[in-house]
Design a protein around this nucleic acid. Structure first.
Lengths: 203, 203
DNA sequence: TTGGCTACTGAATCGCCATTCATTTCTTAG
DNA sequence: CTAAGAAATGAATGGCGATTCAGTAGCCAA
């Protein structure tokens, strides 16, 4: 086996473990998932997990890093393909957020449910990838402010937090109720409408 | 000891345990908190906890119920003292949400961080009190729609979820960073402004 | 004073599960 | 083909911590 193939092999096993962990965490949550369950889901022995990850916490963090990186790449790729002003991009962002979640149920469930816990309780972990995600959103807001489309007096950091929160909570409901993909278009359209134009009626 | 005094005594001990649990859960999270830590925080023996609660899960759920009930009562009391149209009330709601959180740090931290986990993983638990909270918000939206102030085409359930999510995420940030009470007024004002008027500039 | 009742205590139990590591299996260079 | 080294295995270990329960303490009524 060449070095390259060896590398691929390693990554494939590592990936299988991550995939098993994702599935298990999404179903039962981090604390209620046994390492042995992840192992069996991944089709490896319990001990094998410890060849790829330091411990259960490390597995959790690695899973975050890995999947968030993937999400961010997809998001950026799709966003850069959108042409138009920042409001158009913001609408696209909202839509993509939902779309990615619906296409990756387990991942969405894992992130919406475990993100908070982990951010707080897995010692030392500062969750840089999540910060990156927020920064993309914040960048859109600031772009809009620079273009004069979004009110300049708003704190872009606060706004991006709030938007993320709104999306996340609606998604939580969606994933937990395991409802049909439903009208993602409808939901994302309504959220965008509120964000951009507000709740009030106009003449 | 009369029956009444006995009752009060019981409730006082029960309350001490709930208070200890709240403090501990807020600091270390449900899964990282030992029952013995709660006991020592409450100044009772480990076994005493099991005289008042079936098990650790039951303690968690009871804590939710109890504190959410209190929050809802305060919220309703304060809201009913607000006179004005539904937009005024919505602004007050947002403001109160932040205010209550800042006045009750541990409670806010507990609710923002543990609510999701519990809703999903404590078997059987449907979290009715949280549903009540959302319903208050939903009621405000619907009132606004009836008054013609809020766009009728919006799904009030979706909207109330989204608003709650926005508030919750901003609060999460606030409580986790343990930042100074800071400008709660500023934050709640900006959030209300976005909700009501939207992000965009107006001529 | 005593006996019974209730509330409380906290040390001991017991099951669980993350982690380890002696052993086995696979891989490849010579 | 062979032997060394790498990778994987999964049964055994060890510690932890929720829960239990035999015993203690306080209280009251007779």
């Amino acid at each position: 086996m060449t070095e390259v193939e060896k590398q691929r092999n390693n990554n494939e096993k590592r990936e299988r473990i991550l995939e098993g962990a994702l599935k298990a965490f999404a179903k039962k949550g981090f604390y209620n998932t046994k390492v042995s369950e992840i192992a069996s889901e991944a089709g490896v022995a319990d001990g094998t997990i410890y060849l790829y990850f330091k411990n259960k916490d490390d597995l959790l963090i690695s899973l975050f890093e890995d999947r968030m990186e993937w999400v961010i790449e997809r998001l950026q790729a799709e966003l850069s393909a959108v042409s138009g002003d920042s409001l158009v991009k913001l609408r696209a962002f909202v839509h993509l957020h939902f779309l990615l979640a619906v296409e990756n149920r387990d991942l969405a469930e894992f992130i919406t449910v475990e993100l908070r816990q982990s951010a707080k309780f897995v010692k030392e972990y500062k969750n840089p990838k999540f910060a990156d995600y927020l920064r993309i959103l914040q960048g859109l807001i600031e772009q809009g402010q620079a273009e004069g489309l979004i009110r300049a007096e708003l704190d872009s950091k606060l706004v991006s937090r709030a938007i993320f929160g709104a999306l996340d909570e609606v998604l939580l409901q969606l994933t937990l109720s395991r409802s049909a993909p439903g009208d993602v278009v409808n939901e994302s359209t309504q959220i965008s409408a509120i964000l951009i134009d507000g709740l009030i009626t106009r003449d």
